[in-house]
């Protein structure tokens, strides 16, 4: 059985994926429902709405996951490069590195004498010293959380999940009801994701859910308004290709 601290670390790392999950599902829900609202307001047919919706969900998922992959990878590469540089610094300037770690520990409230002994002891094992120096002096944590492939996968799945929910009613329901149900689904899902985030971060579930929902309402409203204005501006429904 894994050590409780090790289990806790893994749990924190897995929760580190919440960024991609929230980003993906939120964007999937809002961009899709916004698109659907706009298309319906512009008078598009069910077929066009479904085709455009599906294409938007797929391309959104690809684009978002590629973005997540590239941004995480860029961050990780820069981060790793910094770590390498600092490992060299520790080797070339041991006194300065020791002094830096000692000051950092001292600032956190440990007595100077205790800091000195700890740093001296740690310095005997280079890898331990380097890792602690990076974390305490430079504020660079473990890079394990930053896994670009996992991040991209979570982003894509979350986006698809978020996109499918508002799209589903357009498959089965009469068009005049589909958007209402899609908005309801979206609102419920966003409220749920907000509550889930609230649970993980130890915040009020209702407040967290409401925060997500209110942002969604604003985005959807804007999408609808743009579609409405376009129709008014064009005078007729937009041409169906």
């Amino acid at each position: 059985m894994a050590h409780p601290v090790e289990e806790k670390r893994r749990k924190i790392e897995s929760r580190g994926r919440i960024r991609e999950f929230v980003f993906g599902i939120q964007d999937g829900l809002i961009s899709t429902v916004g698109l659907l609202a706009g298309m319906q307001a512009a008078g598009s047919s069910r077929f066009v709405i479904l085709m455009a919706g599906t294409a938007a969900v797929c391309s959104g998922a690809f684009s978002m996951s590629a973005g997540a992959y590239l941004s995480s990878k860029a961050e990780k590469e820069i981060f790793d490069h910094e770590l390498e540089k600092e490992a060299r610094f520790v080797e070339q300037e041991p006194y300065m590195a020791q002094e830096g770690l000692l000051d950092a520990l001292h600032r956190e409230g440990l007595a100077r004498e205790a800091c000195y002994r700890i740093v001296k002891l740690m310095h005997e094992q280079k890898s331990v010293f380097v890792a602690t120096f990076q974390e305490k002096v430079l504020g660079l944590g473990s890079a394990d959380v930053n896994n670009p492939v996992k991040g991209a996968l979570v982003m894509a799945l979350s986006f698809i999940l978020g996109g499918v929910l508002p799209l589903a009613p357009f498959v089965f329901m009469p068009l005049q009801w589909a958007l209402v149900i899609a908005v309801l689904f979206t609102g419920t899902a966003l409220f749920g994701v907000g509550m889930f985030k609230g649970k993980l971060s130890g915040q009020s579930l209702g407040r967290s859910g409401l925060e997500f929902l209110s942002i969604a309402l604003i985005a959807t409203g804007l999408g609808y308004a743009v579609g409405f204005l376009l129709e008014r501006f064009a005078g007729t429904p937009l041409p169906v290709v």
């Binding site: 002094e99 000692l102 100077r112």
Partner: peptide, 16 residues
């Protein structure tokens, strides 16, 4: 009655 070398230094338990 003696010469005195009075030297100040920043802190105990440092590496310099």
């Amino acid at each position: 009655g003696h010469w005195l070398v009075l030297f100040f230094y920043p802190a105990d338990f440092t590496f310099v």
